[in-house]
Design a protein around this nucleic acid. Structure first.
Lengths: 130, 130
DNA sequence: ATGTTTGTGTTAAGTGATTAATACAGTAAA
DNA sequence: TTTACTGTATTAATCACTTAACACAAACAT
C-alpha cells in the first residue's frame, strides 16, 4: 500500500507526473473533488508541504482549481485534459525513440521489443489504480 | 558544445547513463582508452569529482577498468557490453509501456505514435555523437 | 633528478529538496 | 459559539549533490 519514489528525483516532481497521469487517463475524472492535502500526504507517505507543492504545480498548469476553504477539484475543461494527455504521450514517445536509437536500435527492432514486452507488462486490464 | 543536464536529477547519474549508452552502442569501443578524469570533466563542464563518481560507478558495474597511473579503459568483455545493451533496452521498453498504458494507450495506438515520430527524431543517420 | 600526467582522497562551502512543527483565515456543521 | 475541516504560509533543521581547492603516490619522458 506504500508508494515508492525514486530517491534520485524530487518527490514533488514524481507526484506531479503521477497526478498528471491520473487526470490524463481519466482515473481522476473531470470536475472530481480531490482529497485534502493532508489526506493525500498521508496516503502517499510524504509531508503535506511536499504534496502541496505538487498540487500547486498542477494548478499552475490549469489541471486543477481550488476553492479556498472547500477543497481542490479537477478541471472541467476536457479539451485541456485531452491536450495534456496528447502532450505527455508525444513527449514520452520522442524521448523513448531518442534513447533507443542512441543504443543503436532500429525501428523494426524497437517494435519487436515492444511486441514481446507488451504481454508481460499489460495482462488483461488497462487501468491499474487499485 | 556545452552539454545540458536535467537540474532535477544528479549529474553523476546522468553521466552514468550517457556513458553507458556510449559503451553499449559501441561509440566507445571495447578496449578503448578513455580520456582522463580532468579532461572529461572539462568536456562536460562539471567538477572532476562529479565525473569521477560517475566513472567509479561504471567501474563497479564492470564496464570499465583502471590502470592506476595510466588511465581508464573500456572493458574488452564484449559479452558484458551486449548484456548491458540488452538490459538497458529492456528496462526502457518496460518503463515506456508502463507509462503509456497508464495514459490509457493501446498497443496499436502506441505503435502508430512511434511510426509517426520516428521520421522526425531519426532522419538519416543512426549514430549521433556529434 | 625534474616535470608532467595519471587516478585517488580530503575538506569546506553552497544549494536545493524534504521534513517537522507550527500558525492563520475562512467555511460548514453541531 | 464551538468544533472540525479546508488551503496556505513560515521557520528551522537535516540531508544529498555539487563545486572548489587542495594533496598524495605512481608511472613516464626529458
Amino acid at each position: 500500500m506504500s508508494y515508492e519514489f525514486d530517491s534520485h528525483k524530487p518527490i514533488y516532481l514524481q507526484l506531479v507526473e503521477l497526478f498528471s497521469q491520473l487526470i490524463a487517463s481519466g482515473a481522476w475524472a473531470a470536475g472530481m473533488r480531490v482529497a485534502s492535502v493532508r489526506d493525500l500526504a498521508m496516503t502517499y507517505g510524504v509531508n503535506p508541504n511536499t504534496l502541496q507543492r505538487a498540487l500547486s504545480e498542477l494548478e499552475r498548469e490549469g489541471l486543477m482549481f481550488t476553492e479556498r476553504t472547500n477543497g481542490r477539484f479537477i478541471t472541467e475543461d476536457q479539451q485541456l485534459i485531452d491536450d495534456v494527455r496528447q502532450q505527455l504521450a508525444q513527449e514520452r514517445v520522442g524521448q523513448f525513440i531518442q534513447q533507443m536509437s542512441a543504443l543503436g536500435c532500429s525501428k523494426d527492432e524497437l517494435i519487436k521489443l515492444i511486441d514481446q514486452k507488451w504481454g508481460e507488462e499489460n495482462v488483461t486490464d488497462r487501468n491499474q489504480k487499485s
